[in-house]
Design a protein around this nucleic acid. Structure first.
Lengths: 343, 343
DNA sequence: GTGAAAGCGCTAACAA
DNA sequence: TTGTTAGCGCTTTCAC
């Protein structure tokens, strides 16, 4: 059976309180007493029961992270950063994924699956403001990603519009004119709207037309979706001279199709992705991509949760922008680009 | 403040036990009483405190998953499967990563960071049997991956030797003779030994020489490591006609270097990877790879943990083999291979 | 500096 | 069918 504080106390011939003081490194314990208790702890192999501690303190040391999907390398890399950021505060991460589906996201925001948590970091795709407004849970919530809600929750993301604008401007500066957008969403909900807006704004600013026939919708955001969208565009007779994709997997799927059709990258079609996942740095053609500062996003998300835990509940949500930069590689610059795999 | 069972009880004018019965769907509650209590629950917005329940029951409903790194898509995809498998049993997953470093792995196995858990699924890289033997933690442990220990813990993995043999046999059947292995480990610990053994056995069986100069060590298991290893091999004047890589990222990194050096895949050098990550299905040359049954691995790992929770502690660890198959793609078959991106 | 005791919110054995 | 009560293991006043 497991040893408890009480067992240690009786073994050492002291009170529970004293043992607790030693375990928690309280200042006012005499060295002799500390040594004696420590000896009993070691001999009995005592390990504190965290559940009991949590019950008493009202904190669990766990923060939940709910992402659309881990298969997407951006989210996987982000998850890794969140685990590290949480560990820096002695927190651990409970992981969940929603598939980007509204019902799952609402469930998670309601604390349905993961209720032993001090806070929740959620990256929604389809979730609507009303789902969040209906939320009864008092647990601190931080939102990640492109969706924005006018609600009293912190929201952390890069400036998606500005980033998209830079990406498209880069393509325009290379002399491209027919720039497609891959990865819009079908249906009413438009999670990609900020990046789409950036695309449109950059084209407008350059006096180019934002041709809606060059906007390709996808069902999801994986490689296969990008490949399918690109194929559809080409099959419909549209041959853009550049592609701006919602994310890297879509861009990479598109590149595969372009290559299959005998189109050269970037000579015939330049490609820019979004997220700067590792994979994009090692393809046959390395991928130019918007690189969000994932470590900052993770750190700020964790810190927001923890600050809410201490302070009063937020009356107003903050919009926090993390940094980003455009990393130029072969898919736009060609093979005179910097060597592959820079950090 | 949060409402407790007691609050609901007094609000409904019944005892705590009755409320508890309703909350836990106990059979012997009259419908009228159930309705009355439920009304109070709704009005007060009561939500059970899981920490207290856990303290009482001795179970938390959380299983920890400790992986070397989430940046590796194989582990990310596996994590997603584990989350799903756990959810099927109403369990959630606490995530940790070790960087594949022995001290971190030992720490995790000791339950250092995550002790609010019912069980641990650990995928070790450098961990040694002695670290595990020193483990005081009574929490059920399941091991994943290539490392094998003669200890009373279940171990779940595909048959790495057989899988590697198949992969190399496939290359031999294509007429390749000088088959390199990429991704051995420097130093004493040799986490890749099973796949390396399969490589050697297949060569031996075919009467070919297993040339140790064609075995390239790497520091890690990412794209960059594969690229570096491939470059080193070529720089040393070794030009294999096939490469068998420890995993897909290494294979993809190697392919990038092969392409840079003007070598054609698979005509000049055929490449086989391991893990069948999504990324390998969308490169300029799709990657032939050993595909482990990730869903089964995840499911069996979760089930092993839960069965240990119920039954007596294992006196003997089981070696459980999950399924695998070799998926042949363009990197060995060339462009007459099946269409890209089959499931 | 150390001890005694209350109680965090819940479940389950036992009573009624 | 419902109520009473004793803890689960810990932290934390409050005495001493």
């Amino acid at each position: 059976m497991r040893v408890s504080l009480k067992d240690v106390a009786s073994h050492a011939g002291v009170s529970i309180k004293t043992v607790s003081n030693v375990v928690n490194d309280h200042p006012h314990v005499s060295p002799a007493m500390r040594a004696r208790v420590q000896k009993s702890i070691d001999e009995l192999g005592y390990r504190p029961n965290l559940t009991a501690r949590h019950l008493r303190k009202g904190r669990t040391g766990i923060v939940a992270l709910a992402l659309p999907e881990l298969g997407n390398p951006y989210f996987a890399e982000l998850a890794a950063e969140v685990v590290d950021a949480a560990a820096a505060h002695d927190y651990t991460v409970l992981l969940d994924h929603t598939g980007g589906r509204r019902d799952q996201e609402a469930l998670v925001s309601q604390g349905f699956r993961a209720r032993v948590i001090d806070g929740l970091i959620l990256s929604p795709i389809e979730l609507e403001a009303e789902d969040l407004r209906a939320r009864a849970e008092p647990v601190p919530l931080v939102l990640l990603g492109e969706r924005e809600y006018d609600l009293p929750h912190d929201h952390i993301a890069i400036d998606n519009v500005a980033a998209a604008r830079e990406a498209v401007r880069h393509l325009i500066s290379l002399g491209r004119r027919d720039i497609a957008f891959l990865g819009a969403r079908r249906g009413r909900s438009q999670p990609a709207h900020l990046r789409l807006r950036g695309w449109r704004e950059a084209l407008d600013a350059a006096g180019l037309v934002a041709d809606h026939r060059l906007v390709a919708a996808t069902d999801g955001w994986g490689h296969a979706d990008g490949a399918a969208a690109m194929a559809r565009l080409l099959d419909a007779g549209h041959r853009p001279d550049a592609v701006f994709a919602y994310n890297d997997p879509i861009a990479i799927g598109a590149m595969r199709v372009l290559a299959e059709r005998g189109l050269r990258i970037p000579e015939d079609v330049a490609v820019v992705g979004f997220d700067d996942v590792v994979e994009g740095r090692f393809g046959a053609v390395t991928l130019t991509s918007v690189s969000p500062d994932k470590a900052s996003i993770a750190r700020m998300a964790v810190e927001s949760v923890l600050s809410q835990l201490d302070g009063a509940p937020r009356k107003e949500g903050r919009r926090i922008h993390a940094g980003h930069r455009l990393v130029r590689r072969e898919s736009t610059l060609g093979f005179d680009a910097p060597p592959p795999a820079p950090a």
